[in-house]
Nucleic acid binder design. Sequence first.
DNA 1: AAGCATGATGAATGGTGCTCATGTTGAGAG
DNA 2: CTCTCAACATGAGCACCATTCATCATGCTT
Lengths: 303, 303
Amino acid sequence: MLELRHLRTLLALRDAGSLVEAAERVHLTQSALSHQLKDLEERLGAPLFIRKTRPVEFTRAGQRLLSLAEQVLPQFRMAERDIARMAGSEQGRLHMAIECHSCFQWLMPTVDRFRDHWPEIEVDIPSGHSFAPLQALGREQLDLVITANPVEMSGIQYIPLFRYEVMLAVARQHALAIKGHVEPQDLCDETLIIYPVEHDRLDVFTQFLEPANVSPREIRSAEMTVMMMQLVASGRGVTALPNWALAEYLSRDYVRGLSLGDGVWATLYAAVREDLLGTPWMDDFLRTARETSFEVLSGVKPA
Amino acid sequence: MLELRHLRTLLALRDAGSLVEAAERVHLTQSALSHQLKDLEERLGAPLFIRKTRPVEFTRAGQRLLSLAEQVLPQFRMAERDIARMAGSEQGRLHMAIECHSCFQWLMPTVDRFRDHWPEIEVDIPSGHSFAPLQALGREQLDLVITANPVEMSGIQYIPLFRYEVMLAVARQHALAIKGHVEPQDLCDETLIIYPVEHDRLDVFTQFLEPANVSPREIRSAEMTVMMMQLVASGRGVTALPNWALAEYLSRDYVRGLSLGDGVWATLYAAVREDLLGTPWMDDFLRTARETSFEVLSGVKPA
DNA sequence: AAGCATGATGAATGGTGCTCATGTTGAGAG
DNA sequence: CTCTCAACATGAGCACCATTCATCATGCTT
């Protein structure tokens, strides 16, 4: 009668707010969800949510099922993990590299949690692959790479982790600081500070400056986020970073953050070797990564 | 991957001890269960139980899933009950009659529990239908009848509650009391005390005496179990009763209990109006009855 | 009023979970 | 040792139903 998939659907619906997006999350069509929920409501004899509102609002019955889902689904995951551990004496390995330069704030707690669940998996972030991590992935020297720039490669799948806004950091006393957002032209007299990578892998260029055919007056690079922040704060340039990378500097009012145009958004992916996808521990890592990053970054408010 | 039906199957398997009987309990074929469990074990990558032993023995993985099932399935039931209550303002009614003369010891706790879960259902055991309860069921004056003698009737379904052994009660000093069981011939010089119903509705006759073509010397009847016990204890006759009806007298060593031949077993049924089957509260009542009777009667040891 | 997004609906389809029929295994009896 | 019986495994076929596709209805935005 009541099935696990119903619970998953309802959770997805609550998190998504609409059938269309909930459908994406559970990898089904909107139609499927509509049918599924209609059937369920008929069988239970009670409406579960109100469709007219946005985001959808749950009835008391719906809320009861949501709370059931939150009780029960974790128990299932735990059991499945336990079983997988009992089954798998297969020593797994999870060696990763990070292409995104400031992921540690959510990656470290993720790894900590994961180690708890899978003590026998060897987790490491070996240095030495920071130059060409995707190639190392292809050569099976690595198992997972965190990146914002998916590049089609055979044997590698890109799993989206979360979306974020790319924002411009400027000094507090900067002329632009009073505006809520900047236009491309605003940057033509600025010094832009970037990580030392090709321009076509930076969303400021591909999604913001190049479409408007604007170039900043000067471009200089810095390896580390702290360094960039110092330069920005002292008025020697501006830089574009993920909102969550800026978060701590914004909260300390060290720099100011501005949207790029109407907002430039990007998605962070985990590039994973296909042969590892589907193993319970890899699935669990990806889920943990999503959950943890959500928790850690959800305090991050744009601007 | 892991589904609710798997958990139900595993619980049934544990309670039944074999695939064949477990299949009955979940209303599937043995083949279905074999397939289902094989698939599951393959997907999990771990064996769940050992088939060669009888009753089957569970591996650690199997036990883990059993414990999951015991955590999770009750939570589902509770949620479904809550939802059914929210949905159903439909005042239900549960009027019952008892054809078996000593069911109160497990029926009362059952009713108590049920009332907790379904306060708005009107539960009653109206007197006045003790004569022809099944007819009253057909006339919709009753909703459920507890009986050990299913009689085919349109619109009525018989739901098995539990199996029990019919045992012979004899006085402590009775000649037969030293034996573990009696043969039909042993009764041809005895006075048999029975409830005042037709002989063909008593298993002592249909399953024990008549097949051997034996009649007791004398037959007398009594309305109440206590009365029968007094007669038996004082050596004025013997009687055949369900083991659980005898239990309290046996434990007080008031009478002795003997198996009839290799053991005569019967099943107690709930006769239910078909239109009520499938309503959540009726399903819940039947489940509660089975569980409660099991708990109450499981202390009852034969002889 | 047009355009867009969301949800509903009905028909068609494909997957899969079940049954049926049969094969295999193991235990107990003669 | 073999016969038998019960329990479980296995493969093929089938039926159901969850899902998809195509389309329609509705409401909000511009």
